[in-house]
């Protein structure tokens, strides 16, 4: 209600500057002046708004092009396929790539089933009421938990309490908890996009609710759910703080062989080389290279998701 009344007030005041004065008999030139002044204000303000949008684009471009320009020289086949050597001042980043893939895929294996099932409950089963509100509140607040707090939680719960130790498993579960709200959000959006007519048709044929969800709703929502999964993977791949205490270590000589191994990961490797290495300046090219690999991975996944989603929307509306 408040919003409605604000806008009504706004509408009233709007009619004053041009229209009101004109009618009270001032000369037309004045009115034209007001008109053109209003147009100029509009043009100036729109230029500001456009500038704001452009600043974002420039920021992204600067960061990406800087990393590409500095990083591409570091990247070659051996950089991608060999482990670091000489206390990480030379060599490649293979263990970090493997580690990041393990962690992000593991996270999605944890979060996807739980996230999709949560979304199904929220969108298909739950009736509006206190329970639904409580669950939503939980999800919203989970989404707002700082990543370092997830790290603390992972340390206290998975690593220490459940005695998983610093391991891939603990890291995947921590990252899974962190990506859960992302998955729920996109899965819910996908379910919302499934027309109600599908549900009605199926129920009208005497299908049960679960048959309807399983055979009609979920297949129709699948592409949207997959988009969300891709975004979840990319989110998990880029996180550092949650894995600092739960999965990642400075250096491991070999690739992991079990989910209870500790591992290296791209984001943590960047952090370590850039802040805690013995020769920060000497390993700059490795830092640039690692950062480039990470953003290619993360932005690549995002681009795939964005393009895929755009196609979906077009197909749905067109």
């Amino acid at each position: 209600m408040t919003d409605g009344s604000i806008s009504k007030k706004a509408l009233k005041s709007l009619s004053l500057p041009g229209g009101g004065r004109g009618r009270s008999g001032e000369n037309p030139g004045d009115r034209a002046g007001v008109q053109s002044r209003r147009k100029i204000i509009q043009r100036v303000m729109f230029a500001f708004f456009k500038a704001a949008a452009v600043i974002n684009a420039i920021a992204l471009m600067i960061i990406v092009s800087f990393l590409v320009a500095k990083g591409y020289r570091a990247i070659n086949w051996s950089f991608l396929t060999e482990p670091p050597i000489d206390s990480m001042t030379k060599g490649g980043i293979l263990p970090c790539i493997v580690g990041t893939l393990c962690l992000s895929l593991g996270a999605i294996i944890v979060a996807l089933p739980i996230g999709v099932a949560s979304a199904v409950y929220l969108h298909e089963y739950a009736r509006p009421g206190r329970v639904l509100r409580l669950i939503r509140l939980g999800i919203n607040n989970l989404a707002g938990v700082p990543s370092v707090v997830f790290g603390l939680f992972g340390l206290a719960f998975f690593v220490v309490y459940l005695q998983m130790g610093v391991s891939i498993l603990a890291g995947c579960l921590t990252l899974g908890a962190l990506t859960l709200p992302v998955i729920i959000g996109s899965a819910e959006e996908a379910l919302r996009a499934v027309p109600d007519t599908y549900r009605e048709a199926s129920l009208g044929l005497g299908a049960t609710k679960w048959q309807t969800i399983y055979r009609v709703v979920l297949p129709a929502a699948l592409p949207g759910v997959l988009t969300g999964a891709i975004l979840g993977i990319s989110r998990a791949a880029g996180e550092t703080a949650p894995i600092m205490f739960t999965a990642a270590v400075f250096f491991t000589p070999s690739l992991p062989t079990s989910i209870f191994d500790e591992i290296m990961a791209l984001p943590y490797h960047i952090y370590v080389l850039a802040t805690a290495g013995t020769e920060i300046e000497k390993t700059r090219h490795l830092q640039y290279g690692t950062a480039l690999v990470l953003i290619v991975l993360v932005l690549g996944l995002n681009l795939v998701a964005i393009i895929y989603r755009a196609r979906l929307r077009k197909r749905r509306t067109g």
Partner: peptide, 28 residues
Amino acid sequence: RRRVGMVFQKPNPFPKTIFENVAYGLRV
């Protein structure tokens, strides 16, 4: 609802094949 079927205002076939649309009710 199996005994009292329904046809809706707007055609609402599932995004499946023609065959699967008709087979749906049998399968469920």
